[in-house]
Design a protein around this nucleic acid. Structure first.
Lengths: 204, 204
DNA sequence: ATATTTTATGAACAGGCGTTCATTAATTAT
DNA sequence: ATAATTAATGAACGCCTGTTCATAAAATAT
């Protein structure tokens, strides 16, 4: 059993080596311009080795994305569970997502590329189990917020979610653009984002 | 002169044939999976003919996108000029953009693919003359709205624009998903979008 | 009607990339 | 220590696609 366990651990190590390299390369070059050779080289393996762990480029990309997303969501969901009401949960969602993005810029870069495609494409995230689980989970929180009177009840929960994510994305992209020195913490923007969502930007 | 004019007219005809085909194919398959052969075939020309009109695939894609965007904006801007105040202009912008998208679904499909990349990529739309002209034009309207007290003045105009477009996109994508029969007019959503931007979705 | 110029064609070219697989190295079992 | 098994390697394969260019067709000029 110890035998098996070490082998398995080594396997996971290879896998995460490749994941790390793939994350970097995909973020840098985008899906199509990133080559398996690039990724293998970055991970310090031969080209063929990648195929010992992943069926093909597509599977590598998709499992990288979904596993990372799962990681992110498990972290965020844990923190959310500490909040007392739905509004608090939404605030936590925004804040902790931003923290995660800030610590995982490469992932965010991939997320941006994927996020809209996944709305349209057949095989996009929205049709994967992970994506649907996430959508249900968040939709429930929005519904709760609607019951609590925090959010108007004539909005579809998934629509609210889309809008929230869209606003978040626009903030993170803005933050992305002003690169380098003067860049303050992303997480500090979470209050503004929630306020923007709830109260809008009206001047009155 | 008549000679020259007819030749030129024929040239433009070819060009727009190819544009039409390219728009369809790019929307259907995305930039990378769309091939010049595909496009030529759809336009009923030989492969090489495409290169008589466009330097390469990149130029075809970019000029297709920017010319279509220019068309859209000239239509939208003309209608905007009829509105009396900044709020009216913003409403017109949203409504007329939706009308245009509704009539040009293939273009919208391409727009979605491009919109976020252009925020990050060096050679994205944001760095083209057309993109910057548009951004300045819209930013001025937002500033005017801020002076008129319609929009809070502690928001950056470009940020407001990004958020507005993000919300619009989320509505159009939602509309996209519920394809077929029960699909009402997109333009009818413009009021909701403006209200969402200005007043948020708060339940109180 | 013929020659000349312009335009269209699609086969051929070149390079790149995903993927495979015979060979080599490492690990495990005997 | 040796055999057997498993894993790693990277050159080679095959396909695809952007692009070119010699050839043919069409248009224009003479």
């Amino acid at each position: 059993m110890a035998e098996f366990s070490r082998k398995e651990r080594d396997r996971q190590l290879r896998r995460s080596d490749i994941f790390a390299a793939a994350e970097h390369i995909f973020a840098l070059k985008g899906y199509h311009k990133a080559t398996i050779r690039d990724i293998a080289k970055e991970a310090q393996y031969a080209t063929g080795t990648v195929y010992l762990h992943f069926k093909d480029k597509d599977e590598l990309y998709l499992s990288l994305f979904t596993e990372k997303l799962k990681t992110m969501l498990s972290i965020v969901e844990e923190k959310m569970s500490l909040a007392k009401d739905a509004k608090g949960k939404l605030e936590t969602f925004v804040r902790e997502s931003l923290v995660f993005f800030e610590d995982n810029l490469d992932f965010f870069r991939i997320f941006v590329s994927e996020a809209d495609e996944m709305m349209i494409a057949e095989k996009g995230l929205r049709n994967t189990p992970a994506g649907q689980k996430f959508e249900r989970y968040m939709a429930d929180i929005v519904k709760q917020a609607q019951r609590e009177g925090v959010i108007r009840s004539d909005f579809e929960p998934t629509q609210v979610l889309d809008i929230l994510i869209a606003i978040m994305k626009s903030y993170v992209l803005k933050w992305f653009r002003e690169d380098g020195k003067g860049r303050k913490g992303l997480a500090g923007m979470s209050d503004m984002i929630i306020k923007c969502l709830l109260n809008g930007i009206s001047g009155r």
